[in-house]
Simulated scan of single mutants.
Amino acid sequence: MHTEQPAERRTREALQKPAQLREAKNNYAEEMDSSIHFKTVSTNPATRGPVYALNDTTLELRCSGAESQRGLFTFATVGVLGVFAWGWTQIAIELIMQNIQPLPDFSFFTLLVTAFVLTTGIGVFYLYVRYGFKLTRLEMLTSRHLLIRFNRKTQQVHLHRPSYCGGIVTFAWRSTGSGATCPKDDPAGTGKCLGLAWHPRYTGLPHMEIAFVGKQGQGGSELRDEWEFIRRFMEEGPEGLPRPRLSTRFPSPIQAFSAQFEGIGRFFRKSSWLFKVAMLMVWPAFVVLGTCHWVSLMLCWRPRWPKIIREAGQPGKPIPPLTTLSDYPPEIQKRLLANADRWALKPGKRPEKKPRKPRIKKAPELDTGR
């Protein structure tokens, strides 16, 4: 949505109902201001991890909204494309040898079949490189994790992402909005990660930035505890906070298999015995997915922060500059600006809805027999 082309946007909006289009533009500045606050939201600050670093200056967490589903694209790439590549290679070598052995004589039919097999294989790999590789890179041959780093000394938040997914960005802590500040939203937090957002109203950018932190929650209360842990670290420091267990940066198989069960512990305990039996019956699927998850971790590399961010907060070291529009390539700048109206806010607050007048039902007419 940030960089959508005008033609693509017109096509998508043409499929939406008028009420959906009005609702997308029905956001008010006062509501946004009131939703971003740094008051206490929980008396039990706790983080469910994974936590990669915690000291007097920085807090570093995993930042991904779909980590538990990781392994599906790896299975499709290695299990489907990999098997096809192995089989195609074996057949192609065999056919080529059948054409070379009888030289200078050769079979025209065998030569034709060889050309067909080579063309088909090359075509499939071309389509994969052209259209499928960008999906594979969500799990393989890319950064092992998305990261978020909170720096208490500089009062900044850093997001670590590959360049093709937005790159590394820096925001002011006080521009951070959280989706876990209101207890009435707790039911919607089941099975979701803690969502953080940076609106253009506070960043000066023409687009919204969103990040999902940590594991999936088993309820909104866990998300509020996670946000309270982050809030207290940035506002007060690590003193008084429970010391979390730091996660290894090595691609551990325990991480790969345990990720599949994020957010379902409470639901599993309260579920019926029939559901528990069904879960036991599909354990081979969990084994396959967990194995592919682990393979994807091993085929990726550990993300590394730039030196200026690693040293931020140390005495005499520079403070990283906040991300601005000029940090993006010119073509991306144009497309971001073209979609900037998506995040525009109306001044003031939302007008109160007028109460509907009760509908008066007419009494049925009596049959007088006339």
Rank of each mutant, 00 (worst) to 15 (best):
3 T>N: 08
4 E>M: 12
7 A>V: 10
9 R>I: 12
10 R>H: 13
12 R>K: 02
13 E>Y: 06
13 E>A: 06
17 K>Q: 04
19 A>S: 14
20 Q>W: 08
23 E>F: 15
26 N>I: 01
27 N>I: 04
31 E>H: 12
36 I>D: 11
38 F>T: 06
38 F>I: 01
47 T>Q: 02
56 D>Y: 01
57 T>M: 11
60 E>S: 10
64 S>M: 10
67 E>L: 10
82 G>D: 05
88 W>N: 03
91 I>S: 12
93 I>L: 05
94 E>K: 15
96 I>F: 12
104 P>F: 09
111 L>S: 01
122 I>H: 11
123 G>L: 09
124 V>R: 06
127 L>Y: 12
132 G>C: 01
132 G>I: 04
132 G>A: 00
135 L>I: 01
140 M>E: 04
141 L>D: 11
141 L>P: 04
144 R>G: 05
144 R>E: 13
146 L>V: 14
148 I>A: 02
148 I>L: 06
151 N>G: 11
155 Q>Y: 04
159 L>T: 01
165 C>Q: 07
166 G>P: 13
167 G>E: 13
168 I>H: 08
170 T>E: 11
170 T>D: 14
171 F>M: 07
171 F>V: 03
178 S>C: 15
178 S>Y: 07
178 S>F: 12
186 D>N: 08
207 H>F: 15
211 A>Y: 02
216 Q>N: 14
217 G>L: 10
218 Q>C: 14
220 G>Y: 03
222 E>T: 08
223 L>H: 04
225 D>R: 05
227 W>G: 01
228 E>K: 02
232 R>Y: 03
232 R>N: 00
233 F>Y: 14
236 E>N: 04
236 E>P: 07
244 P>E: 01
248 T>R: 11
256 A>S: 09
258 S>L: 11
259 A>L: 01
260 Q>D: 07
266 R>C: 07
271 S>R: 03
282 V>W: 10
291 T>F: 10
293 H>P: 09
295 V>A: 00
295 V>R: 01
304 R>K: 13
309 I>E: 02
313 G>T: 02
317 K>F: 03
320 P>F: 12
323 T>M: 15
326 S>N: 13
330 P>Y: 10
338 A>G: 02
338 A>I: 00
340 A>T: 04
341 D>E: 08
348 G>L: 08
348 G>M: 12
354 K>W: 13
359 R>C: 12
370 R>K: 06
